[in-house]
Design a protein around this nucleic acid. Structure first.
Lengths: 158, 158
DNA sequence: CGCGATTTAATCGTGCGCGATATTTATGCT
DNA sequence: AGCATAAATATCGCGCACGATTAAATCGCG
């Protein structure tokens, strides 16, 4: 009877894990038209919100490490979507700028969210509530997990 | 203004993606004591529910392909948690059996769910509701995404 | 019975994600 | 100025995940 706690279908983590991969699969055909993978698309979202951000800053937004971002950004650069340049004030940092091509991609991506909303079988209100609950869950897990190495990401503030 | 739909913090997919990774990070130190990675733990959950399942069946439960499971199961075998044997009736299939060691691991894992519940900052009821909503979302995405190759997983029936 | 179609795993190549480590540049202290 | 320390990226190795392909066994239809 203690077994119920170890059943797969009772695991919130598994629901998240499998739903996240299902989302990635759903995005894939649409993103392929743009020449982007799903994680690359997330980086582009960040850059469309603000050009010229550092690797560090992008990692804070996406909760990713430089060891993940560096090769990903190189692929985005090779695809002609962004440029990587050492900062002029501080040569340690690398600033990521959209190319004309990368900027243009935003228009092509604009139709995707509505399609994904449809695929989710939720209305906008439910989706928003669910998103906030999941974001709060992520924050709680990060907080409970404690600092981790934290060269990037997590809460910072204070 | 159309921009709101492309903002990172409005993306349900990103909330899921980042929460899923946050969960994996939260599990990691506890699973390391058991000598398991997080995906390996999910496989063990499946096997603790029923020993001797085929690779195909495990893939159906976890929504994973044989190309993911085969090497993972080989690592579980190398670690002494499971055995892999060709089926006797049907030699195409490979049946995964727990070793004594793999069975014993269940007792050690039994305390983890309560710890993760605490880390989630949710009560059991909220967690259950959230889990079901996310599972329904996954199902909707799979349905909308359509069949996919489907050598494994998805809905089958009928 | 025999042969094509299907099923089941395995293999290969690519990309993501992390932790540990290295490298380069900046900062701070005396 | 000089030197330890810290910060920002990059590199390396490992494991997960997928799609495409392959290989072997089974099934099914004539």
């Amino acid at each position: 009877m203690t077994d119920a706690l170890l059943q797969l279908d009772n695991q919130l983590c598994f629901a998240l894990h499998s739903a996240s991969h299902a989302f990635a699969r759903a995005y894939k055909p649409r993103l392929q038209k743009l020449g982007l993978t799903y994680p690359q698309y997330l980086v582009m979202l960040v850059l469309w919100e603000g050009d010229g951000q550092t690797v560090n800053r992008i990692g804070e937004r996406l909760f990713l490490e430089s060891s993940t971002l560096t090769p990903l950004l190189k692929r985005l650069e090779a695809a002609g979507h962004v440029t990587r340049r050492r900062g002029v004030e501080d040569e340690r940092e690398v600033r990521i700028h959209l190319t004309e091509r990368g900027r243009a991609l935003k228009a092509a991506a604009a139709e995707i969210p509505a399609q994904m909303l449809a695929a989710s079988a939720l209305d906008a209100g439910e989706l928003g509530r669910l998103r906030e609950e999941i974001a709060a869950l992520r924050a709680a897990l990060d907080a409970a997990g404690g600092s981790r190495s934290r060269p990037m990401g997590s809460l910072n503030q204070v």
